[in-house]
Design a binder for these strands. Structure first.
Lengths: 200, 200
DNA sequence: AGTCCTGTTGACCATGCGATCAACAAAGGT
DNA sequence: ACCTTTGTTGATCGCATGGTCAACAGGACT
């Protein structure tokens, strides 16, 4: 137990620390573990200070979810910005199903569960899910425009793709088994819908 | 507040009441709401009595999850026991995605989340997921044997099917939107994999 | 009617949560 | 060197969780 008084920092700095601590706690132990005391302990500060910066813990949880998930989507955007539409699709699936992303999946699952008791979180979940949906739709749309994919309804394919990714990821969090064939299953199904022959 | 003392009942009867209360609470407010006090209040009994019958609350939560989900699978089994393999497949998808099943989906989602902190629950989740997997596999296997489906790997298709159902259901719990096209998306993808022309 | 078994309860305890607020103290400006 | 600002804290509250245990009392049996 460190009884020393914490050094004074600027509000921006402290706020950043709090967000960072919340983020790493969420990734390590789930969104449920993002608690006033846990965050305070991690940055060596009195619990009351967390309340002082974030008037409501619910809000911090929402922000943390949003930060983690938005960062993930940004990563995916980065991984899918070049190549043919089909290559980009494969990159998206590979990134989304990457086992190193388990922590993020767990955050999604917690958010689905917590969202039923935290309206703001539920809204954030919808918002982020929609952002994913838009990204996937765009990818399909450009592929169709480029003639790489059959003339399908992009929204429909995005739905299929994300539903499948979410479902398989959720299962793998519990099963702790990451069969590499998962990606193949997703790709095969999606590519078939897109009228693309499934290859190696 | 009813201050009357609860009537004496036989252990079996009381145990049944407790299980039943836990079950309806889980369906109405989620697995997270299955708490000593909530269960006791619902059957008009002192909280201590719940502990007296179920030494650990974790155990009651696990049993409740298992009961709800197993009942669901039984229902699905009932709905898919006659007709051609393709009809049975369609019945499975229709039942699994039925909006009236939202409560059960919420229970699944809570279990995924809670399972990370409750090892016994995680085991039950795996066990029930495997039971679903087996059922879906059998359905595909018989379809393949009957020549209705292409010669595919049943496990793979079951994987696709259940992943998709889980993912779409989880999303609909948050979005509270039940687009009837969901079933069409699932069927289209699965039937394509099975080499069956997708029809009305 | 009395006895005894056992289902049931109230009174607790320890722990964890979010939140409040007066009081402290570290830095920077004068 | 003093003062003022403000980042920080301790103490505490209210509430909820699971769990324990001695004591109560309903009801069947004698």
């Amino acid at each position: 137990m460190d009884t020393r008084r914490a050094a004074r920092k600027t509000p921006d700095e402290r706020d950043g620390e709090i967000r960072g601590a919340a983020r790493s706690i969420a990734l390590e132990q789930g969104l449920v573990a993002v608690t006033q005391r846990a965050v305070a302990a991690r940055i060596g500060v009195a619990p009351a200070l967390v309340t002082h910066y974030r008037s409501s813990m619910e809000g911090l949880v929402v922000d943390t979810f949003r930060a983690i998930v938005a960062a993930e989507l940004d990563e995916v955007r980065g991984a899918t910005q070049q190549g043919t539409a089909r290559e980009r699709l494969r990159a998206l699936v590979a990134t989304a199903l990457d086992p190193s992303r388990d922590a993020v999946t767990a955050v999604w699952v917690d958010a689905w569960s917590l969202g039923r008791r935290n309206a703001a979180l539920a809204a954030a979940v919808r918002e982020q899910a929609d952002a994913w949906q838009r990204h996937a739709e765009e990818l399909v749309t450009t592929g169709v425009a480029a003639g790489e994919f059959a003339d399908v309804e992009p929204a429909r394919i995005a739905w299929l793709l994300l539903g499948l990714v979410d479902g398989l990821n959720a299962q793998s969090v519990i099963h702790d088994r990451h069969d590499p064939r998962r990606a193949a299953v997703v790709l095969s199904a999606v590519e078939r819908e897109l009228g693309v022959a499934s290859g190696a």
